[in-house]
């Protein structure tokens, strides 16, 4: 019996602790449907927000799957899906040069400007 293993938490049983005598051959990836990202606009919302992912054989099915999976509790009234492989993300290593240069441009923000009190609603 293997008891000298990592700390156990719920859902964290180490793999291979059981009797693995009937392991079958790996059939992974054949017939696997591609992954899609789902974006939902809620009733009050102005923009589509990322809700999660799912698998579907094509775009039409992806939209319907998104409807069935992600809007069961009236989460939205409009759906976008895009195949995950077409999502490009910025590189975390570029974070400094990408985002920090914006931090000293305070003059871009309306609060930068001191105006007389009498001038309301500008």
């Amino acid at each position: 019996m293997n008891t000298a293993i990592k700390k156990y938490y719920y859902g964290d049983i180490p793999d291979g602790a059981a009797d693995n005598s009937n392991i079958k051959n790996n059939t992974a990836t054949e017939n696997a449907w591609p992954l899609w990202e789902v974006f939902i606009r809620s009733k009050q919302g102005l923009d589509h927000k990322h809700a999660g992912s799912l698998h579907a054989a094509d775009a039409q099915m992806a939209i319907e799957n998104a409807r069935d999976v992600y809007t069961r509790r009236q989460e939205g009234i409009s759906l976008w899906v895009v195949e995950s492989k077409y999502i490009h993300a910025s590189n975390p290593d570029d974070a400094e040069m990408f985002y920090e240069p914006a931090s000293d441009k305070v003059y871009r923000h309306p609060t930068f400007y001191d105006l007389p009190e009498e001038l309301k609603h500008m």
């Binding site: 009937n22 054949e30 696997a32």
Partner: peptide, 19 residues
């Protein structure tokens, strides 16, 4: 890791689930 791969690991007995 693909879902298909994870499911294979479950089905083969390699991966575990809550007892």
């Amino acid at each position: 890791t693909s879902r298909e791969q994870m499911i294979d690991d479950l089905h083969s007995g390699k991966a575990k689930y809550s007892s």
